[in-house]
Structure formats: C-alpha cells, structure tokens
Amino acid sequence: MSGFRVHLLYFAWLRERIGCGEEEIEVPAEIRTLGALSAWLAARGPGYASAFAAGKSVRAAINQSFAGPEAAIGPGDEVAFFPPVTGG
C-alpha cells in the first residue's frame, strides 16, 4: 500500500524544536487522521518528539482551517501544527 504526500507547516516553538518551518513528506497510507499524523511525526526524531511531546497543547489546521485530532487528512493537504494562538 503506497503512502501519500502532504505539505507540513510548523509555527512558533514547534518550528524551533523541529528545526524547519515547512516540509513536503510522504505519509504511510494508514495515517488517516490529524491525531495519527502527529503521533507518527513524533517518532521521526528528537526534535519532532520534543515538539509533539506537549500533546494537547499543540493545535493544528488542515488547508488553513482549524481542525481537531479526529479530522481526516488526505493527499495534497496542507497541514499546519502550532501552539495555542496568542495574537491581539
């Protein structure tokens, strides 16, 4: 079973811990939700483990809309991970 490609973006301290702001990666086909994707990313290396260790304090968006861990992801999606927002 072949995987699919997604475009990933990281902001604020997630970007700093992972060491890059964006990347295009191939995700295994069995990864179907945002929650599964973040768990899979956390196992990619120490920077990712550190970024996603905070667990529920990481928020996400799929194709520029906020999304929760149950949200479905698919080929070509732009998925962003970031801390809770602090603008204003």
Partner: peptide, 27 residues
C-alpha cells in the same frame, strides 16, 4: 472582535527580554 481575535486567529508572540531571555507567550 478583539476577544475572538486573541483566541481564533493564527498569531504567536515571542518576548525578548532586556536580560537576553526569550519566551514564547503562552495562551
């Protein structure tokens, strides 16, 4: 508008202190 903007728009603040420390502001 300002209350919703603070919790629903994708901005993040980092504080750089005069003593050299840096901190991402927590929600």
């Amino acid at each position: 508008l300002i209350d919703w903007l603070k919790t629903k728009a994708p901005f993040w603040k980092k504080e750089s202190f005069a003593d050299g420390g840096e901190v991402w502001v927590e929600a």
